[in-house]
């Protein structure tokens, strides 16, 4: 879980995140917004959204992830894998990038099934892990 340079300041990691997000939006038309963020709430890269919104979503997603982790820890059910927020006109899924202090948060409209959305989020997080891991190797 240690990056030498913080992910949000590392141009290579930012480029990887943009690459993954581009592919992400290609395979899922119901995707409205997505962002990679550091565990402590800094935006690494985003698709859609303005700069202010991106920073705010990164902070909120970081807090949500930490609260999810805290609940899972308190209930002794292991680490929180993902979080889903279902609303009237869409939902947000966020998932940690495995082995890294990074999270992917994605907003889908209501047309998408949760299963499909979860599947593409998992794929994107996994792709990000592979890119960052290969860079480190």
């Amino acid at each position: 879980m240690t990056e030498q340079v913080s992910a949000h300041k590392d141009p290579v990691v930012i480029a990887f995140a943009n690459e993954v997000l581009d592919g992400f939006s290609d395979v899922c038309r119901s995707l409205r917004y997505a962002t990679f963020l550091t565990d402590d709430g800094f935006e690494v890269a985003s698709i859609a959204g303005d700069e202010k919104q991106n920073r705010r979503v990164a902070s909120m997603a970081s807090s949500m992830q930490a609260l999810g982790d805290a609940v899972a820890k308190d209930l002794r059910i292991g680490g929180a894998e993902y979080i889903i927020i279902a609303a009237e006109t869409g939902y947000v899924i966020q998932m940690r990038v495995p082995e890294h202090a990074m999270v992917l948060a994605a907003h889908f409209d209501a047309a998408e099934t949760v299963g499909k959305a979860l599947s593409v989020v998992r794929l994107a997080a996994s792709n990000m892990r592979t890119l960052v891991r290969d860079k480190a190797a």
């Binding site: 879980m1 990056e3 913080s6 992910a7 565990d39 402590d40 709430g41 982790d69 805290a70 308190d74």
Partner: peptide, 10 residues
């Protein structure tokens, strides 16, 4: 205590 800490990159 309940804590919600993340790795500090700042």
């Amino acid at each position: 205590t309940i804590r919600t800490e993340a790795t500090n990159t700042d």
